[in-house]
Nucleic acid binder design. Sequence first.
RNA 1: GGCUGCGUAGCAGAAUGGUUAUGCAGCGGCCUGCAAAGCCGUAUAUACCGGUUCGAUUCCGGUCGCAGCCUCCA
Length: 482
Amino acid sequence: MLKIYNTLTRSKQEFTPKQPGKVGMYVCGMTVYDYCHIGHARVMVVFDTVARYLRHAGYQLTYVRNITDIDDKIIQRANENGEAFTALTERFIQAMHEDERALSVLPPDIEPKATQSITDIVKMISTLIERDFAYVGSNGDVFYAVNRFDGYGKLSGKNIEDLQAGERVNVDTAKRDPLDFVLWKMAKPGEPYWDSPWGQGRPGWHIECSAMSTCCLGNHFDIHGGGMDLQFPHHENEIAQSEGATGEPFVNYWMHNGFVRVNEEKMSKSLGNFFTVREVLKQYPRPDVIRFFILSSHYRSPLNYSSEQLDEAVSALTRLYTALKDIDVVDEVIDVEYLRRFERAMDDDFNTPVALAILFDVAKELNKARERNDAGKEASLATVLKKLGGLLGILQENPGDWLKSPRRVSLDHVVDSVAISDSVSVKIIEKGGDDWVQERIQERLEAKKSKDWALADLIRDELNKLGIVIKDRPDGTTDWHR
RNA sequence: GGCUGCGUAGCAGAAUGGUUAUGCAGCGGCCUGCAAAGCCGUAUAUACCGGUUCGAUUCCGGUCGCAGCCUCCA
């Protein structure tokens, strides 16, 4: 039985979809004016993993993740660049999709864009005005009247009085109440705009998610996710808008992922302490590495970013891929025991650290089977391991290739480029090309044959220095990996 | 200031009212020409102070420390 921690109730609850067997999930996606950073990667990977698991659990899932392609920051950035805002957003949407692919993130089923949902947004605002939840302010902007909505604050655990007490000084006089937020913003000269009953303008940030989610999934759906920081005000406002407009409950389960931190501090645009996905991929080019790093802590916990952590992910994955090496997986999972343990972990609010620990248990038993030459057991355990890895979006590459691929790229002495994915190309270590390695290994085998251990060890040391590890097989051949 | 949440071994990171998490790093052994990988064994922990309990790291209260939201932010 799947349990999900629901921010709304601050507790783990058994998951019961509205309609048996079907799940609707909406996740707040990116505002596309810059490259995705590791914090964005966490959202993508976490909810991709949730989606994979829900499907594994037998649900027919509709996964919606929106794109915010119009807002103040986009307009500002486009102006700075002297380009059309659409050119800017198109470029970064493409970059985002490249990053996703490089992280083995499967595309959501629907990816609505704010600019393509203006009709629905306008319709929802009209309804809110009709139902007296919204009004036109003295400057022509349309605002949501927060005090009209009784449940305001139920998600973030805030109450209106506290919020009013903590108000900032610069009060927008166009609003009736400082807590009110904008639904439709009038365009200033030169700004992009869409026609509406209230004049030419653009949607506020919060309304687009209300409109897009209810349009794609219905007025009332199962899961809504996003980063912790969206709890307030974004998701609180979404509830106010959607429930105000439809009169129905909006979302049953709210899921929020924790932040990525750098030196115990939130990674964010405003602090400027962020690493973009493509930056990190240059050093750790394999999709599995960043995914493993992200999934190695629970999605609600903080995740500290450091190269040590990514190095550990590389080591851990090397162990798993080493276990999988040279085994043909069979079609069907026979070792159901591990699958059940894995499901028990994932059923407990998507406990990926425990799920990963189970992969290591499988690897250990697999290695034992290998030691006693039990090929049948090896194959069946390799099958479970790959299957479980697949549910987490890892371990799907050919183990031999993976182990030989540069997955922790030293930035020193590099020369040649090699394409890793459509967004990333990585430089290979000088003198470290595959052919060169093969030659050195051949030389070492000759030295070994003539029992010139000193030379053999010298060659091995040289290879080690370049990050290449060699392994003499019992049959006299030598294997290697990076 | 108001509201959340957190504090587990060298590091990362789970879990639990009484019994091995797991990975990396360490130590001893097997294997190996020596290694590597793998296997076997092994050490190190629950911020602090009280309370509840036969027993608390786990529940409750307090102290200290950290993070987040309250303003755009995943």
